[in-house]
Amino acid sequence: MSANVNTALPLEYQTEQNRMNILGFWIFLGAEIILFGTLFAVFSVLNARYAGGPTPKDLFEIKDVMVETILLLTSSFTCGLAIYEMRRGNRNGLLLWFIITLLLGAGFVFMEVTEFIHYVHEGATMQTSAFLSSFFVLLGTHGLHVSMGIGWATMVIIQIFKRGLTPVTARKTFIIGLYWHFLDVVWIFIFTFVYLARMVA
């Protein structure tokens, strides 16, 4: 709680409260790993229960999935660059890369929503089978996280505009960066175990 500032460290690590927030967020990410792990467990158990409904081979389009993957991977990269610029104290660089990240994220969400609408038109809804229930909920949870991330990052961008780079805004930016990379990590596993594995099986 003390406002002791250690200027030798990067902005986001300068106060004790900041360090606590960052550690706390890492712990939260630990909980998120388990949350997504559980969703993966559900998907792994139910993924062959089609109940007469469509199968992954009927539905998945590898091209669209690859585009989504690359969008998200690139956004994770640009997000890393944003933090990199922040540590150099370059506010404009930070904002530029940050906004590019969000645009890429928005592109991803758009692709995913289109994909879902497409499935629903093909008669594959959440209510069709256990496989689709677990598919939509796993992907939907990830998509919701990305959307929340975009909203949250927008708040932070406004604050950077208003207040500039301070230990507080830097910490917020850093934390959202962690969150964004984490969502990319989750996507890697979705890409691997939902799309690739189910298309091969």
Partner: peptide, 13 residues
């Protein structure tokens, strides 16, 4: 919302 995770119909477990 009528999904089938734990139901006996629709392939739930």
């Amino acid at each position: 919302f009528g999904t089938h995770f734990f139901t006996i119909s629709g392939g739930g477990m």
